[in-house]
Amino acid sequence: MAETAVLRRLTWLAASVAGAVEETPHVRTLELDVPGWMGHRAGQHLDVRLTAEDGYQSERSYSIGSAPGDGVAITIERLEDGEVSPWLVDEARNGDQFEVRGPIGGYFVWDGDEPEPVLLVAGGSGIVPLMAMARHRAQIGSDTPMRLIYSSRTWEDVIYRDELETLGLDVVYTLTRAQPPGWTGYSRRIDMELLRETAWPASESPRVYVCGSTRFVDAAADGLLELGYEAIWVRTERFGATGS
């Protein structure tokens, strides 16, 4: 029946853990093996569903950090009071299975086929979907200018720190809680002054992707609008107060 075919296309898929990378003390990447996965675009997310032995189910959304050409990897920040993230970060082992639904999203995506310069603005684990864009740009050999403004609490909390140096994009760091000795980067929350000094000028009509907590996204988007950016250039994704 047609109805069945539609539901099958969108249904939950079995995923198994194929690898793990400890990114920071609180953040881990899980590489997933998902038979039937249709491929994703840079910036998309997926939903994870865990089912307990008693049948209790819990769902959360996680951004895909891998480039479209590289399989499915999600990067998860452990939330201390979370139902799903502590298991994904601390417990999941190779071969463990859970369900995923996706890929999801057609708004917060960058396919690499537009000439305008790209500005990525990340707060904490908001880097994850933006990393998929940066990796995609490197993978397809795009010469579209791309700049990342990345706000973290401390240097140890910077996710993908080593790889970010290798992707050929400008990276501007700000560390809001503590800075290592000799730190020459920014050391405050993102505001309009910081954006004025680091973002592409509005005259270049940049494409902007902002991802972080609701408070972070509001501050960054408001600052960019004050600098003369058009609202339609600025795409945002919020993960609420505490995490993705």
């Binding site: 939903d47 639904r101 999203g105 057609g106 917060f108 609420g240």
Partner: peptide, 22 residues
């Protein structure tokens, strides 16, 4: 601070409408 945005509806809306709604 509890506010999310429509990106977070992607999964449930995809199931209901059969195409991306974000």
């Amino acid at each position: 601070e509890l506010k999310l945005d429509g990106n977070s509806l992607g999964g449930v809306m995809l199931e209901l409408f059969g195409s991306d709604m974000t």
